[in-house]
Simulated assay, not measured.
Amino acid sequence: MELLTQLVEHFEAKHYAFPTQKQSTPLDMLLFLTESNALKQADLVGIIGSSGVVSEVVNGKRSISKGMAIALSQRFSVDAGLFLT
C-alpha cells in the first residue's frame, strides 16, 4: 500500500504539478473571475469604484485596496485574500 501511495504521488507531481515560477497576482485573479463570469469593466463600477478607478485597476495602474478586496470577495463569493498581496 505504501509503494502504491508513493507511485501515485510521484505520478501526480510529474503530470499535475502547478508551476511554482508563476504566482497569480490579485489582478490576475480579478481578470480571471470577471472573464469566467462574463463581466465587463462596466460591471465592476459601483463595486470597487468609479469607471476611472476600475480602469486604473484593470490596467494595472492602481492596486486593489483592502476595501476593494472585500467588495470583490462579496461579489464573487471568494476569500478577500485572493485580491491582496
Rank of each mutant, 00 (worst) to 15 (best):
M29F: 11
F76D: 06
L7A: 13
S51K: 13
P26V: 01
Q6V: 01
V54A: 10
I64T: 07
I70R: 06
V53H: 10
F11L: 12
F83C: 08
Q41C: 11
V8Y: 14
K66C: 14
A42E: 09
S55P: 00
D79I: 07
F18R: 02
V54Y: 08
S77Y: 08
R62Q: 11
S63K: 15
F32Q: 11
N59M: 09
A42D: 07
A17C: 06
V45I: 10
R75I: 07
F11R: 08
S77T: 12
G60N: 03
L84Q: 02
S51R: 14
L31M: 11
I64H: 11
D28H: 06
A13R: 05
I47K: 03
H15L: 10
D79N: 10
D79H: 07
S63A: 14
M68E: 02
E56A: 15
G60F: 04
F11C: 07
Q21F: 15
K22E: 05
S63V: 11
V8E: 15
G67W: 06
Q41Y: 12
E9W: 00
F76R: 03
V8W: 10
L31I: 13
D79C: 01
R75V: 08
S36Q: 15
Q23R: 04
K14T: 15
L82A: 01
V57T: 08
K61F: 15
G60C: 05
G52Y: 06
T5H: 07
H15N: 15
L39I: 09
